[in-house]
């Protein structure tokens, strides 16, 4: 449990950090995913650049109906910041489900997003929120949607030299109900499946609905088949149950020691049902 030797830099500015990263250094944020891999010698980066301390990546602010969250904001801050709890409760709720308090105190939003663990919690919420992810390299900045960003198992739209600098989520309209429901793997605490739902009512019917699912397969996704089966339908248990049955449509489910593909698929349906119920009950 001892890492290989490596160099460690703590640049003072983002520009400096991006310069080092362009030269091949690896960003270190909360270290909650990277350091264990290094201690097992499954990862042996030669040069780490600590970006967690950069003030330029540590902020939460509201601008034009959107919330901008710096990549180095910790899970704990996402979970507890009044601005997020009030205006994007789905993200805050999701952050509260990550690991344990020690992990949440150090792990960061940007680190989790960039790492793209297939069982990570945030991606479900970010898919449902139609979040934007801001990517920056020494050469410049671009913005992609969550749906574009998460590509496959541990695979994202990040190009070499690029880092995540910010996540942008909408200020939740007051009437929307949201919920994150997670079946956790008891050993690690990661998600076997996690389902984030946003529900707006349209009278007695479902209005707009977004559902994001993590853990089921190699990457998070929007469960569009579920959404389509809800919109415009009566906001009832039967509608939810029938719609949730589509949670895993077109998806090849993961299988491991803790859950076979069939079981995971069944859990995805159950937790989608729960998330929709819960979101509906919180909507006005």
């Amino acid at each position: 449990m001892i890492a290989n030797p490596f160099e460690y830099s703590t640049p003072a500015t983002l520009a400096e950090a991006l310069g080092l990263i362009a030269d091949g250094a690896k960003p270190l944020s909360g270290g909650m995913s990277l350091i264990p891999m290094m201690k097992l010698r499954l990862a042996s980066p030669e040069h780490l650049v600590d970006i967690a301390r950069l003030p330029e990546l540590n902020y939460i602010r509201e601008e034009n109906g959107e919330l901008h969250i710096g990549a180095a904001v910790t899970h704990y801050d996402v979970e507890s910041a009044p601005l997020l709890c009030g205006k994007c409760p789905l993200l805050a709720e999701t952050a509260g489900h990550i690991g344990d308090i020690q992990v949440r105190n150090r792990g960061t939003l940007g680190g989790s997003v960039a790492h793209a663990d297939p069982a990570a919690d945030y991606p479900a919420a970010l898919q449902a929120l139609e979040a934007k992810i801001v990517l920056r390299s020494a050469a410049g900045e671009r913005v992609v949607t969550a749906a574009e960003f998460f590509i496959d198992t541990f695979t994202t739209a990040l190009e070499p030299g690029e880092i995540v600098t910010e996540v942008v989520v909408p200020v939740e309209p007051g009437l929307t109900g949201t919920s994150y429901q997670k079946c956790l793997q008891p050993a690690s605490g990661f998600a076997i499946v996690g389902v984030a739902a946003r529900v707006r009512r349209d009278g007695a019917n479902f209005g707009a609905v977004q559902v994001g699912i993590t853990g089921l397969t190699g990457t998070s996704y929007r469960a569009t088949a579920v959404e389509q089966a809800l919109v415009g339908k009566p906001a009832t248990d039967e509608t939810i149950r029938a719609a949730a049955a589509h949670a895993a449509d077109g998806v090849e489910a993961n299988s491991d020691l803790h859950a076979s593909a069939d079981y995971r698929t069944s859990l995805a349906v159950s937790y989608t049902t729960r998330a929709l119920h819960s979101a509906l009950s919180r909507s006005a």
């Binding site: 097992l40 010698r41 499954l42 297939p118 069982a119 496959d152 198992t153 541990f154 695979t155 793997q185 690690s188 990661f190 397969t217 190699g218 090849e252 993961n254 299988s255 491991d256 020691l257 803790h258």
Partner: peptide, 16 residues
């Protein structure tokens, strides 16, 4: 080490 700590990732990784 991969086998000892990577159980939850092996399936998806192989497929990818």
């Amino acid at each position: 080490t991969m086998a000892a700590v990577g159980n939850r990732m092996i399936d998806m990784t192989a497929r990818m």
